[in-house]
Design a protein around this nucleic acid. Structure first.
Lengths: 237, 237
DNA sequence: AGCTTTATCAACAATGATGTCAATAGTAGT
DNA sequence: ACTACTATTGACATCATTGTTGATAAAGCT
């Protein structure tokens, strides 16, 4: 007590605002993965980032500001990786879809993205953050993906519902895999690390085999308890 | 201060411990769906349940005790619905798999279960709760499901990897659908409510068509960029 | 009726997290 | 060097949440 001015002899590390924000977001992301949402207390995050919590508030305005920035950062990262998956093989020849699916699974089922999905799901429906920009970008990307899958080299374009459902299947399975991986591992399914690319390749084979059959009627009246169309296509090879 | 005794004139509602706990868990589940994890503050939950937060603590020991009980309750409910899906069609004839898949999707992609999955994912890896019992039960159920899918009436039993991957595909897709449904809806894929059973039926068709082809070798060397095996060899037995 | 048990609650205490503020110390520009 | 700007921080203030306590009231039992 009684410290009017002792001429603080502290060595301060002065970062640029961009660096400081990046350090905070890195620490926050790491803490989110390691300790869940409870790990995002600004005091702890600031300590991990090497600054006081007051400085963190100075850069992000508030605790919620930091969370919103983290969501935005993680969303941007997810989107960037998604773009990388799509842009990898521009012409999209026949068997390249398998490679793309393997990458898509590896990307979407990543722990960071799984945490982001889970976070957004657990958060109240209106978190106050504006995802309009990302929605627009993602919609364009999805349209690109759909069109790319739909018509390949030479072959006649696929049925619209088929491609739509196929893309939904791949995306939902990859996302769900990220969520359920520890559980599936405990259950004995999909234990080893190599299982995921194998699974992705298998899914690709499955979709590919479907594509080579005659375009079916898809599922028209599926709301009945019995699907009804045991034989939906008159061929069977 | 100095209120020795004013003879409180309050009308107290006295419930049995089981009723009180059930009321709390109901309120907590509703608040979790409506407001996310922030909605689980014991004061608000107790108010919704019609009691003081002190009473809530009296029944659950602590705030974390309530959360653990909620996780256990929701897990039990999920498991019960899962069992209901499996037990519905005992003999599992050929086309009944489609109906079962529709139910499986409807069940696993339900909002409550999606919230549970997301919660458990966002929570630190070791939440201190013991899921050993549920793990054992679920493992048995999964074994039952796998065996049931693997060998049907008459037909030769399916390849083990095929059934395993098929089950993984269905489960992960259903779980991921629960997580990504609002997102998919915003994206224009899977908008209408009837889309989900249609999608489930389509997945069932897809798996069924695969089953009727010659059993492939699944994906062996999938780590290469090109999957490579257009023609698979039937060794693996 | 009395007695015992315990579910209930208002009030208090304890803890912790968020946000504010004034002062300090780097950095750049003059 | 001096100045302006601002990133940084310790200390404080504020608030919310959790947990405790003693008393009270509802129910069951003899």
């Amino acid at each position: 007590m009684s410290k009017p001015a002792v001429t603080g002899r502290t060595k301060r590390l002065r970062r640029s605002p961009a660096e400081a924000r990046a350090a905070v977001l890195d620490a926050a992301r790491a803490r989110l993965l390691a300790h869940g949402l409870e790990g995002l207390k600004i005091t702890a995050v600031a300590r991990d980032a090497g600054m006081s919590h007051a400085t963190l508030i100075h850069h992000f305005g508030s605790s919620l500001g930091m969370r919103d920035a983290l969501i935005e950062s993680m969303t941007a990262e997810l989107l960037a990786e998604f773009v990388a998956v799509l842009d990898d093989e521009a012409p999209m020849p026949s068997e390249r879809l398998a490679a793309m699916l393997v990458k898509l699974f590896a990307t979407l089922s990543d722990d960071r993205h799984a945490q982001l999905f889970a976070w957004l799901t657990v958060e109240p429906p209106q978190p106050g953050i504006d995802t309009g920009d990302y929605d627009r970008t993602t919609r364009d990307l999805l349209a690109l993906l759909l069109d790319r899958v739909r018509r390949r080299d030479g072959a006649p374009p696929l049925d619209a519902d088929i491609t739509r459902f196929g893309v939904v299947l791949a995306v939902t399975s990859a996302v769900g895999l990220g969520m359920a991986r520890p559980w599936l591992s405990r259950m004995g399914l999909l234990g080893e690390p190599g299982d995921i690319p194998r699974f992705a390749a298998w899914v690709s084979e499955l979709l590919e085999s479907r594509r080579q059959l005659a375009t079916p009627s898809s599922a028209r009246n599926a709301s009945r308890s019995s699907i009804g169309n045991e034989q939906l296509k008159p061929e069977q090879r």
